[in-house]
Design a protein around this nucleic acid. Structure first.
Lengths: 124, 124
DNA sequence: GGGGAAGTTTACGTTAACGTAAAGTATTGA
DNA sequence: TCAATACTTTACGTTAACGTAAACTTCCCC
């Protein structure tokens, strides 16, 4: 019998509101089981939530995260769709590469800024 | 005599609308000179715009980018403020580190997804 | 058995980041 | 000279991603 989570538990763990989690479900990013009215989250649901929040930290929209979630599941036996999926994966990879490059540029700019700030401090 | 740019030139170069560029000015991120009514952008203005768009690709808000721009200029001779600036720089650096880690996790997840997709394709 | 505490639905409100349209000015090329 | 281009300001509209509030049910505890 595998572990489950309540919406409140997940909200606390990831520091989001329950409203946020329900909103993600509304947008089709999560589909927890129900015990009566109450939502019951599986470890897989929790992983999905984690994926969404990781995406948010990288500036992804919920639509992009939904796409990412779909990439992470087979979900098709159609050749065309699988090929299209490979393409979307490649596109995402390219986007991540660009973000990585952007981060590196920003890091060296921060290095510069810090050096100049320290320089200004020694001049006081 | 240093080069200048019109708003249209910059818009074309960076693939944004002129509305967007004016909006950034409205938000205090850009302050081009004027020739009469018309905005005239310096190479420094262009660099600032590039910084903003790089931030956007990383999911930064305009407020964050405004802060980044300020980090990139001395702008103070007050010890307290310089120390505070160093702190903000350190914070940004930490954020970039986390984003970098997030990207790496996502990259290996994409690797998995691609492998599984190729596997599904060979099974057809 | 009477509160809390945690869950639910429904619905209106809010903010950021522009889009879109209207109406006017300035320059430029046929 | 006139019509197309590129610029300007002003102002209302739009979308994503929730926040906030109200009104309700369920469960647990003393």
């Amino acid at each position: 019998m595998t572990k489950t989570y309540s919406i409140g538990e997940l909200a606390r763990e990831f520091d989001v509101t329950t409203r946020t989690i329900r909103f993600y479900e509304d947008q089709g990013l999560l589909s927890p089981r129900r015990r009566g009215q109450t939502r019951v989250y599986s470890p897989a649901d929790r992983t999905t939530l984690k994926l969404i929040l990781r995406g948010k930290r990288l500036g992804f929209s919920l639509a992009e995260s939904r796409d990412l979630i779909r990439m992470y599941r087979p979900a098709s036996d159609n050749r065309q769709q699988l090929e299209a999926l490979l393409q979307r994966i490649a596109d995402k990879r390219a986007q991540l590469e660009r973000q990585l490059a952007d981060i590196q540029v920003l890091q060296t700019e921060l290095d510069d800024a810090e050096a100049r700030t320290r320089q200004a401090l020694t001049g006081l």
